[in-house]
Design a binder for these strands. Sequence first.
DNA 1: ATGCCATAGTACCGTACGGTACGGTTCGCA
DNA 2: TGCGAACCGTACCGTACGGTACTATGGCAT
Lengths: 213, 213
Amino acid sequence: MNAAMKEANAGEGLTERQRAVLEQALRLLVDGGEKALTTAGVARAANCSKESLYKWFGDRDGLLSAMIAFQASKVRTLDVTAETLDGASLGAHLVAFAKDLLEVLAGDVSLALNRLAIGQASREGSKLGHLLQERGRRQIGRRAGALLEAGRKAGLLAFEDAEEAYGALYGLVVSDWHLRMLLGEAPGDMKKDFSRRAEGAVAAFLTLYGTKG
Amino acid sequence: MNAAMKEANAGEGLTERQRAVLEQALRLLVDGGEKALTTAGVARAANCSKESLYKWFGDRDGLLSAMIAFQASKVRTLDVTAETLDGASLGAHLVAFAKDLLEVLAGDVSLALNRLAIGQASREGSKLGHLLQERGRRQIGRRAGALLEAGRKAGLLAFEDAEEAYGALYGLVVSDWHLRMLLGEAPGDMKKDFSRRAEGAVAAFLTLYGTKG
DNA sequence: ATGCCATAGTACCGTACGGTACGGTTCGCA
DNA sequence: TGCGAACCGTACCGTACGGTACTATGGCAT
């Protein structure tokens, strides 16, 4: 594996070593929160030197940004193939999307990064917040947008503003669960309800935007 | 004003002086985030001594908890009088509730306290998170619950699980706006849409749970 | 007047963190 | 084999914060 290969398959301009370091940093963040994410701690956990951290990422904020970008680069939302949709398959796709959304939001890495970005949102013009928004929400929003658009093209959904319809779907699926998990409510207690919750939310969404009613 | 009076009209066991100090602490938090909320900074801003802070609130976490409890004690949700509801007044009440909800969530003190609690959620068993949840959400949830129950008693709403119906209303109203504001998106850009948003959400909610359709 | 209590202001201490500098080691390459 | 780059481990520095101690001051009751 030459240098070009190393740089290529990361999705970002990162070497394997740097990705391994970011992985350890994420682990630290998940386990102990932002307070545990010290430069010395990352260096110790990843068996690298602080000097290398500063050389690679500039400063602590650069490390945080790199962690967000790295995590986002790992979560690739596979685009739905534009197959022919009928009522049942649209419903199934929507339920699958809803479950995935809940699973992603309840993931410990996602929760930790959201907590990190929110905690830093007051200062620094919320740079991390915008990064997280851009890298995370845009991706999953596109998948939903494509799905909704396909449903409309197939005559199964009726809406004028796709953004509004997506907002309704998101709200029905997530409600205040995300905030509650961010505030510390154990996700473990909730995960068993994800399926039921996703199905109920999709049923309500189809009542609002489906053409069958 | 005697000592008993001082203690009485706060809603918490706080003297006027202590409430004034907490007010300054909230101001500091709103302006500069958690990083700006140092014991020395609070003492300087409130013209009090650090020793008094520790005497009154124990330690820094006690100060944070007191800030949350104090702020919650200020926001009293006036319970709706159980008047006779018709379709129009129920809709108006729901829209008013939705607007209030959005206004509260977009308030800078609310955002700052939520950011604070979320930032500390990883460690300490999320004590602040539970406190915020208990003091804030329960209040507004009760108001919504009473309203929904009144609507059902009047034959205007149909639902089996009030919690589920409330979750749908909340999701339709808030969607991901709260998270976006927590991540730093300027609330100023959104506030002008609150009315339209509240009305649309209530219309969708009535489509789902109203008895007219 | 006098003693008591609460509190402001300040000085102080220990610690922990961000960031830098330096010696020693490994590895690729000529 | 020798050289240089990258990097690890550690030591170091300045700063800032949480928390404590001490003094001074003003009000209040006896």
